[in-house]
Write a protein that binds this DNA or RNA. Sequence first.
DNA 1: CATGAATGAGCTTTCATTCAT
DNA 2: GATGAATGAAAGCTCATTCAT
Lengths: 231, 231, 231, 231
Amino acid sequence: MPSPIKFCEIAGSVRAKRARRKEARPGELLAAALDLFVEKGFAATRAEEIAQRAGVSKGTLFLYFSSKEELFKAVVRENISVRFPEWRAKLESFEGSTAELLRTFMTQWWTHVGDTPVSGITKLMTSEASNFPELAAFYESEVIQPGDALIRSILQRGIVRGEFHPVDLKYGVYTVLAPMLFLAMWKHSFGPGKSGPNKLVPEEYLAVQIDTILNGLGVRPASPLNTKQLP
Amino acid sequence: MPSPIKFCEIAGSVRAKRARRKEARPGELLAAALDLFVEKGFAATRAEEIAQRAGVSKGTLFLYFSSKEELFKAVVRENISVRFPEWRAKLESFEGSTAELLRTFMTQWWTHVGDTPVSGITKLMTSEASNFPELAAFYESEVIQPGDALIRSILQRGIVRGEFHPVDLKYGVYTVLAPMLFLAMWKHSFGPGKSGPNKLVPEEYLAVQIDTILNGLGVRPASPLNTKQLP
Amino acid sequence: MPSPIKFCEIAGSVRAKRARRKEARPGELLAAALDLFVEKGFAATRAEEIAQRAGVSKGTLFLYFSSKEELFKAVVRENISVRFPEWRAKLESFEGSTAELLRTFMTQWWTHVGDTPVSGITKLMTSEASNFPELAAFYESEVIQPGDALIRSILQRGIVRGEFHPVDLKYGVYTVLAPMLFLAMWKHSFGPGKSGPNKLVPEEYLAVQIDTILNGLGVRPASPLNTKQLP
Amino acid sequence: MPSPIKFCEIAGSVRAKRARRKEARPGELLAAALDLFVEKGFAATRAEEIAQRAGVSKGTLFLYFSSKEELFKAVVRENISVRFPEWRAKLESFEGSTAELLRTFMTQWWTHVGDTPVSGITKLMTSEASNFPELAAFYESEVIQPGDALIRSILQRGIVRGEFHPVDLKYGVYTVLAPMLFLAMWKHSFGPGKSGPNKLVPEEYLAVQIDTILNGLGVRPASPLNTKQLP
DNA sequence: CATGAATGAGCTTTCATTCAT
DNA sequence: GATGAATGAAAGCTCATTCAT
């Protein structure tokens, strides 16, 4: 005779299976939404299409996200916002030179953001910001400001430790930001169409930019503006 | 009492005026479309609004352009490729130092392109490139490649004359391009919403970037990466 | 050879025909909307159905009325609001006794409102008021208040001329209103299902009510509370 | 350490409690539905909300009632026909004057029906009658006809005892009914929104109506049509 | 029995495009 | 050529109803 415990365990696992399914849905929807938003833009992506790609019906999407805008915000939070604490922690525990810190930061950004679909969000927001003011404000406070603060902290660290010239932080931030934004935009607009000898190799481009920035900040690198010296 | 024929003669002169304006119609539509596409984006601009601003009816728009997409393509085609010959001529007749040439080039770009509605085309194209691959290819060959060649020529001039380090031109071009593209995008997306102490002043930003680039190219400027030295 | 005048006349008539068509649309839509709103209620009536019954497409409806609520408001204005000025004029130019005025008012109301689909609006608003607060507020100011004022004026006239007892106008108004509202409600809810000897004959019911009211107001009628005396 | 069996015993007692509540479920659902239908109307009440208020899940609701419409019908059926036997008994054992009986009847109706949520049923039924013809017929025979008979009996009593004029009972009934229906409708539609000097005070309104009716029936009250005589 | 995750028909509203005039 | 009334395909979102657990 099966012990009653058995019964209770089964009841528990049933609920657990359902719960697990329910918990998986948002993730599947967010993944589908990220792909489609990046591919077609916010306005041009239909809610039903996202649901379809996630393997659920239109109604289910709205069971988990109260509107298309909320879904987009969740995509941003899930893929960008959540990274800032980790990045900040890394920054604060970093022990090497600030030049190395900046280099690490920008390189890692490329590996973990720029070279993934997530960078499409940056392109998308830059493109559609003016049409969705509420979304733009959200992105401003959720991504731009923390990102700005992060870069600012790095530069500040370099200045405080006497590694960098005391620069105007406002433009220092943009100097770091511009190449990253440029890469994100390029990758998602003209990048794909380009090939041949002029094709931009992001890692190389970024390395050149980092050297240039560090040079501008007073740190003497081996070779400014390019890695491969012409003969 | 005026004969009714008189009235119809007036109608005739109206017709004449119409005929005269007929030639101008596409141009007026293109101008209106440019303004609106830049202001609100492609999807958010209503065909009727364009027609209204051009002073014609919705039907007339579709008489000249078979669809909204075709109109968009025409807008982009019509507003580019026009300045390159002039710029190339200026470049070739320039007599000062190449540092000065580069500074002039970027400053003039801001004055005559970046800070005018024309920069909206850049933003527009970058935003919509993935939705109009055919147009993106056209833009690539009509704008990006000539622009690339122009900047390349400037850098080459500097290297040949011994003013610049011999850098890898491919990345040198992007180093010049990125701040310009960044400014154009910023101006048309998050720029307008921002104010306060962090507001980007394009002329200052550009000056900082120019100094940094020239510094990276081996030209020693007075103050790298910032204009206002901290004490 | 046809005179040019001919041409101009034709052009004129063409425009006229179109204009006439355009002017007819709102009326057709309003008529269809009245029928359907009364038949099925505001919420349960689909916009497309209204358009269909008016012989146009869904889109056309929204060409003339910016929303379903606006369409409803227009139905109310067209069928009720517009009558108040006329009614007020009649009231002010009426020369007979106030008893006769009240009798005329209520009888005419039945003929021109109560016994037409328009009374369905009253039923509809009473039923759905709490679900559409904005509509309820509109109806309150557009119909209830003017109606209240009209009845109030009649009673006032009777009191001033010494024909009626000086009653509390607030309840006087409701005393007049209640039978009318009752009839409207009855007709559109239980009325249709009832037949046989107990079936309410509105004209008779109204006559009895008028007598009762006048009696209550101090005017001595021939037979209070009923017209047909039992033997 | 408590044996796991204990836990399952608890589960067992939970099941017992469930079974006990099972009997109550339909009642709880009906009560919740009554409240919500009255408050928001049939269409605007969401099934889930009813379930929530009854403390069960959406699925359970459909276990007991096959559809929202069936639930509505059950709500109406459940809340009527209960008071008539009691009222009829009171009527038949009443010993005072018929004027007093009528006054008592209408006053008590207000206290025990009109001024309670039950009057919401009246409003509900009147509003939705045309959408539920079957239910309307049911209501007609279960509520309207017994109510009609009750009022008819009162008037008959007055006439037989020589207290009232011999009136046409058909319209006499509606004369009594109309103010009550009016109050019920008013309370649930425009009533709540209104305040200020024109706000209807039900008890006063009813008193005025009773006086008027009695006056019409030949019973001389102190002050017809109003309670507060102007000087 | 009870649950609640999932469904999808249905609603209002928008707007590129057509075509009779 | 020019007009603008008319169209109808979408789109976002809701909610009664179902059914696996």
